[in-house]
Design a protein around this nucleic acid. Structure first.
Lengths: 189, 189
DNA sequence: CATCAGGTAAACAGATCGGTGTACTAATAA
DNA sequence: TTATTAGTACACCGATCTGTTTACCTGATG
């Protein structure tokens, strides 16, 4: 039973596609309405301003992840593998949250705040898994893993080369192993 | 003896300030002309299109660096220190090249190609220094260092927190040391 | 003095931007 | 049947965009 998508959903889908593929500032409201097959009036009925639509776009992209029961190290490295797959899929255009921050350039914009929260959520995910692994400084290493992820995204974008995902993954392994052997050494001392 | 800046230079300085602070798409040609204290006609006389001005903006930002005679490891870590200082300076808005790629979203745009060349130049710098240090895979580690730099930039931007520079530097140390101890181990074997 | 390159200010062109107002239509519920 | 709701098509608003045109000015050079 396929429920037909509501107007709001079609608008959001069109905004997601166009905003991500072409950029927030590059796409006009008329274009989104046309892509959604909806009159501009209806669009403005659901999303009173373009800023609201931008915020909804980023909110809808916000995929929460929770640490699973799988081994922490595998979960983290698997994340890098998924990254590389995203890079290889045609049409990769970078991180929508980082892109929104740079395109809008306004720290008080609702979209910027959503972006910050997204990155915080990701950071907490790394931190939880690293703490479970018993590394000495989960917060610091979580930040470093996040740096690797952001850097892989940016590098894949400007180089147009998905294999940086593998490089980032390898770096993550070295950092994690170093943090673990550190712990062992400390434990022995 | 202060030579008065030429019109072309004043226009470029205005473009640099406004493009970097507010974004390429967010700034109009009229605004740049006004900031430069120059008529719009004069601006278009020096830079026939906005795209030309964008390309000139990125070209002017292109600071070549050559490996110096200082110890390679110090040069690389010093680069991260300079990064952190840039983050802490008010008005940091990310990497102008990455920003241009995301804002323009056109791989054939002259500005995009300048961005790619810039990153290649940086990569070559790391590679040369790492090769001088005798690490096993200078190319791979250079990519990883570049990932750290890009990631630190993106993270500093969305977090609005300069200290990620330190985290990236620490990660770079771990990666470099691991690559060196690897080499020693191989040499001993 | 005459010329002319290089600058100015300002209007203009044509397109697009975010957002509204209006008049019409189709379906639904009282 | 009639009133209401939710949608459409489309013109319109003022602002802004890149880029051009026009008319004027000014200072150096012959």
């Amino acid at each position: 039973m396929h429920k037909p998508p509501t107007h709001a959903a079609r608008i959001l889908a069109a905004a997601d596609k166009l905003f991500y593929e072409q950029g927030i500032r590059a796409v006009g409201v008329d274009t989104i309405a046309a892509e959604a097959g909806v009159s501009k009036r209806t669009l403005y009925n659901y999303y009173p301003t373009k800023d609201d639509l931008i915020a909804a776009y980023l909110t809808a992209r916000f995929k929460h992840i929770e640490p699973s029961d799988a081994p922490a190290r595998e979960q983290i490295l698997g994340y890098f593998d998924r990254l590389e797959r995203m890079f290889a899929d045609g049409g990769f255009r970078g991180c929508p949250y980082v892109n929104a921050v740079t395109e809008l350039g306004d720290r008080k914009h609702a979209a910027t705040r959503i972006a910050v929260r997204f990155k915080e959520q990701r950071l907490a995910w790394y931190r939880t898994l690293l703490a479970r692994m018993g590394v000495k400084d989960p917060e610091g290493l979580a930040t470093q893993l996040q740096i690797l992820v952001e850097g892989a995204i940016a590098s894949a974008l400007v180089r147009d080369d998905p294999t940086v995902g593998r490089s980032a993954r390898a770096a993550a392994e070295v950092l994690i192993d170093a943090a673990l052997s550190n712990k062992k050494r400390k434990a022995k001392a």
